[in-house]
Computed example of a mutant assay.
Amino acid sequence: MKTIGETIKEIRKMKGFTQSDFTDFSQPSIASIEKSNRSISINKLNSILADFKMTLREFEYIRNDYELSKTDELFYDFASVKNSVYAEQGKQIVNKLGKHIAENPSDFVIYCLFIIEDVFVKISQQNTYEVDSPESFQIWSTLYGREAWSYQEIFIMSKLFYVFPEEIAFKVIARVEREMIPYINFLREINFDTTFYVNVGKYLIHKNNLKKAKEYLQKAAILAKKNDKIILEIDINAHLAIIDHLNGSENAHLEVEKCINKFIVIDRELLAKDLTSDWELFFKKKQRVSNQ
Score class of each variant (00 low, 15 high):
Tyr183Ser: 01
Ile184Asp: 15
Ile184Gly: 06
Ile184Met: 14
Asn185Leu: 10
Asn185Val: 04
Phe186Met: 11
Phe186Ile: 01
Leu187Phe: 08
Leu187Val: 06
Leu187Ala: 05
Glu189Val: 06
Ile190Lys: 07
Asn191Lys: 15
Asn191Gly: 10
Asn191Ser: 11
Phe192Arg: 02
Asp193Arg: 15
Asp193Ile: 07
Asp193His: 08
Thr194His: 01
Thr194Lys: 07
Thr194Asp: 11
Thr195Ala: 02
Thr195Pro: 00
Thr195Ser: 11
Phe196Met: 11
Phe196Arg: 06
Phe196Thr: 03
Phe196Pro: 02
Phe196Ser: 01
Tyr197Trp: 08
Tyr197Ala: 07
Val198Gln: 12
Val198His: 10
Asn199Arg: 12
Asn199Asp: 12
Val200Met: 05
Gly201Leu: 09
Lys202Glu: 15
Tyr203Ser: 01
Leu204Thr: 07
Ile205Val: 11
His206Ile: 09
His206Tyr: 08
Lys207Trp: 06
Lys207Leu: 13
Lys207Gly: 04
Asn209Ile: 06
Leu210Lys: 09
Lys211Met: 09
Lys211Tyr: 12
Lys212Thr: 12
Lys212Gln: 13
Lys212His: 03
Lys214Arg: 15
Lys214His: 04
Lys214Thr: 14
Glu215Ser: 09
Glu215Asp: 06
Glu215Tyr: 08
Tyr216His: 05
Tyr216Ala: 00
Leu217Ser: 01
Gln218Asn: 05
Gln218Cys: 01
Gln218Ile: 02
Lys219Thr: 03
Lys219Arg: 10
Ala221Leu: 11
Ala221Glu: 13
Leu223Tyr: 08
Leu223Pro: 00
Leu223Met: 09
Leu223Thr: 03
Ala224Asp: 10
Ala224Tyr: 11
Lys225Cys: 07
Lys225Asp: 06
Lys225Gln: 11
Lys225His: 13
Lys226Asp: 13
Lys226Ile: 05
Lys226Val: 12
Asn227Lys: 11
Asn227Leu: 13
Ile230Val: 15
Ile230His: 05
Ile230Tyr: 14
Ile231Trp: 01
Leu232Tyr: 11
Leu232Ser: 12
Glu233Gly: 13
Glu233Phe: 02
Glu233Lys: 03
Glu233Asp: 11
Glu233Ala: 07
Ile234Trp: 02
Ile234Leu: 09
Asp235Gln: 14
Ile236Ser: 00
Ile236Phe: 05
Asn237His: 10
Asn237Ser: 03
Ala238Cys: 08
Ala238Met: 10
His239Gly: 02
His239Phe: 15
Leu240Phe: 01
Leu240Cys: 00
Ala241Glu: 06
Ile242Ser: 03
Ile242Leu: 07
Ile243Arg: 10
Ile243Tyr: 12
Asp244Leu: 08
His245Arg: 12
Leu246Gln: 12
Asn247Ser: 14
Gly248Asn: 04
Gly248Glu: 06
Gly248Met: 08
Ser249Glu: 15
Ser249Arg: 11
